[in-house]
Design a protein around this nucleic acid. Structure first.
Lengths: 133, 133
DNA sequence: CTCTCTGCAAAACATTTGCAGTCGG
DNA sequence: CCGACTGCAAATGTTTTGCAGAGAG
């Protein structure tokens, strides 16, 4: 079980670094743009591939914006959690709801479902964005 | 307030009829395919436009599959509700969770967010699909 | 060295839009 | 009649993939 893990390439470091510098959820496209701006460019396909791997390994959270676009963010807590996202500026608050977890799995079990996963995201307009409207 | 509503065209009737014949969530592409199969073909763009309007008016529920594709289903209950969806066969169970509603709005308000909306979907493998695996 | 990772460009998809013609009311 | 609705094809935007070359271990 010698987990060699992914290779330590410049591109991977750049993606992780850019994610670390961002508090909010960003799309693969956004990230690609940011990297290009700071002159640490990484191919778009590589950004997608890297984010995909990180999401699979649990290193980043992935959510879907209301239009279906995927957005990523470095995972802060180990525990499963959800997000309150400003649909204007993207500001994010990480929230926990232990009851929802249990409710979801109980509900699924009651109907004979297994391998349960769930999504729970809250979208709104944050105070700052509402005022500057 | 004479709501004339949308026009009663063959295409709109075909879409509604096809939705009525399906218990599970279907994508616009699926629906377009089904209509073509039964020889009651409707342009793909029209399927999208019609589903979009119906979703806006609340006539259908719209959820995002795990891959981000939009899926639609005739709305059964007036109240806001959520879904337990089999990720293999698409079988759907409509569930309600009044606590989640309140929790989401309270949580958002506590952080100064307004115009709150939320998504809560549960994905799993239903008994039938688990057995035939 | 070897095998994974990368970049680029093309492909694959879902969805939207421009426009001219159709048809419901 | 007239404006909303439709079909088609082209445009868009995101994400994936094929392939040859680069570089990590």
């Amino acid at each position: 079980m010698t987990d060699t893990g992914p290779r330590n390439t410049r591109q991977r470091r750049a993606v992780e670094s850019a994610l670390r510098r961002t508090d909010d959820f960003v799309s693969a496209q956004d990230l690609h743009g940011k990297l290009r701006e700071i002159g640490d460019s990484v191919g778009l396909a590589t950004v997608y591939r890297t984010l995909g791997l990180m999401a699979e390994s649990g290193a980043v959270d992935m959510i879907r914006a209301e239009d279906g676009e995927a957005r990523y963010r470095l995972c802060e807590s180990e525990d499963h959690h959800h997000h309150l996202v400003c649909r204007v500026c993207g500001r994010t608050v990480e929230v926990e709801e232990p009851l929802a977890e249990k409710w979801a799995s109980d509900m699924a079990a009651a109907h004979g479902f297994t391998d349960v996963s769930h999504t729970l995201e809250i979208f709104g307009t944050c105070l700052t964005c509402a005022e500057s409207r």
